[in-house]
Simulated assay, not measured.
Amino acid sequence: MPIVLHVDDLLRERECTVRELADAVGISRVNMSHIKTGDIRALRLSTLDGICSFFDCQPGDVLEYIAEDDT
């Protein structure tokens, strides 16, 4: 998938747990764990807003678009 999530990196850099982030955002730890591993097909804007608020960052710090090769 050309969209890469950097939640795992942000958690590691800021020494936070999935539980802390999930509680702050208001979603289950299981769902946050799926987001952390990138095992999702969609992300609610309200969840992205909560993640950005928790980390005090911009959406571009959480998401990255990587173009796929045309070959």
Rank of each mutant, 00 (worst) to 15 (best):
E20R: 13
Q58R: 06
A42K: 13
D49Y: 13
S28I: 09
T47A: 08
I35T: 01
V18L: 11
D70V: 09
I3Q: 12
G26I: 00
T47V: 12
N31P: 03
T47P: 01
D49W: 12
C52T: 13
F54W: 05
D9Q: 07
K36Y: 10
C52L: 09
D69C: 14
D61A: 10
H34K: 14
G26T: 04
D9V: 05
L63K: 10
N31M: 09
I51S: 02
E15C: 10
C57P: 03
D70W: 13
V25K: 13
L5V: 09
S53G: 12
P2M: 08
T47R: 12
S46V: 06
V62Q: 08
A42D: 13
E15L: 15
S46N: 11
I27L: 10
P59W: 02
E68Y: 13
E15P: 01
R14E: 09
Q58L: 03
L43Q: 00
E20S: 11
D49R: 15
L43V: 00
A22K: 14
L45K: 10
P2Q: 05
D23R: 15
D69K: 15
L45P: 00
S33W: 13
V18K: 15
L63A: 04
D8Y: 05
R19K: 15
F54A: 03
I3T: 14
C52Q: 09
L21N: 00
D8A: 11
L43K: 00
L10M: 05
T71P: 14
H6N: 01
D8V: 01
G50R: 12
L48F: 07
C52W: 12
A42N: 08
L63W: 08
I27M: 09
L11H: 07
L11M: 03
T47N: 12
R44D: 08
D39Y: 09
A22I: 02
R19E: 10
D56C: 02
D56M: 00
G26S: 01
L5N: 07
S28Y: 11
R19A: 14
R44N: 06
Q58F: 03
L10A: 02
T47G: 02
V30F: 12
H34T: 03
I40G: 02
N31T: 03
R14K: 15
N31F: 13
R14A: 10
V4K: 15
V25C: 03
L11D: 03
C16F: 09
P59A: 05
S53F: 12
D69S: 15
G60Y: 09
L10P: 00
I66N: 06
C52I: 07
V18N: 13
M32I: 04
N31H: 14
L10Y: 04
I51D: 01
C57T: 11
K36D: 03
G26E: 02
I27C: 12
V62R: 13
R14C: 08
A67C: 10
V62I: 14
K36A: 07
D23C: 03
R12D: 01
R44H: 08
V7E: 06
S28G: 14
I51K: 05
T71G: 15
E20T: 06
T47F: 06
L43F: 00
A24E: 04
S46L: 04
L48A: 10
V25S: 07
V7M: 07
I3L: 15
V62N: 10
A24M: 04
L63P: 02
K36N: 14
R41N: 02
G26K: 04
H34F: 11
R19S: 11
L11Y: 04
T71R: 15
I27E: 02
D61W: 06
P2K: 11
